[in-house]
Design a protein around this nucleic acid. Structure first.
Lengths: 133, 133
DNA sequence: TTAAAACCATATAGCCACTATAAGGTCAAT
DNA sequence: ATTGACCTTATAGTGGCTATATGGTTTTAA
């Protein structure tokens, strides 16, 4: 199949496919005489794997690492679990950071109501004063 | 004061200050005969304002908008409150997205324990199979 | 048969908010 | 005279794409 069909069947842009190839995440496929890339079922699976990882917000570097593990099927899989644990920890810390942020924003917002003049705006005042920390 | 002192007093890199100037967030200061930038107390306040906004993860575009409002002190401040409300909504949606993500990751992680071979790794399997959605 | 539409190719720039590097000028102290 | 700390500009890199420009190829419809 050609790049457009691969793109449609996995749900990505053709540009993204070429980008993954350049980044070494997708093996370079054979070419037709006219230079068009020809993909196989393996490429579909490989691309779908990448996409599933990306949905989970794994970085391209982490995906690369996972692909290396796939090449050594008889190694212990602890490193994979560790990679995932680290990623989960990262997501959790992002969540708590954002929750702190949300509280700060809500408290700032509470310092104003609509229908004031900008001069008297509690929000702008909160941002201008060093009272924020 | 020169750029280094401004940077130290607000806690940013000198590069960042020049970057804000290029982006139009910080007004271009006067220069000494040798070309060095000379800053005033106003610049300190202005830079600190930017930094407080950035801590709250407001974008440079949003900060720009806030600065425009500061120039019109007798306009109603509703637009400012709306800007903040939108930002809060955005942060909240990021949080819920990340919470969904965390659940998916934890459930994937639960499909494996350490001490398997990569071939049998539940995590890698979950990523390879289309069972994820 | 020809012309348009749809597809493919490469190369390059843009997004965001910086951060890093290179290459050099200025100034005070030793 | 030289070291070191400071300043200057210009340019490239980060991540993961996405957009644009420019041009070749194939398919489809008039």
């Amino acid at each position: 199949m050609r790049i457009g069909q691969l793109a449609r069947s996995v749900g990505v842009d053709t540009q993204t496919i070429r980008f993954y190839e350049r980044e070494g995440l997708l093996p370079p496929p054979d070419r037709q005489d006219n230079g068009y890339r020809i993909y196989t079922e393996r490429h579909v699976e490989r691309l779908a794997f990448i996409r599933r990882c990306r949905i989970l917000e794994l970085s391209l570097a982490e995906i690369h690492e996972l692909q290396r593990y796939q090449g050594a099927p008889h190694q212990p899989c602890r490193a994979i679990n560790t990679l995932l644990d680290d990623h989960i920890a990262q997501v959790r810390s992002q969540i708590t950071d954002l929750q702190v942020l949300e509280k700060q924003l809500v408290s700032l917002r509470a310092s104003c109501n609509d229908d004031r003049e900008i001069e008297a705006c509690g929000v702008l005042d909160g941002l201008s004063e060093g009272s924020m920390q």
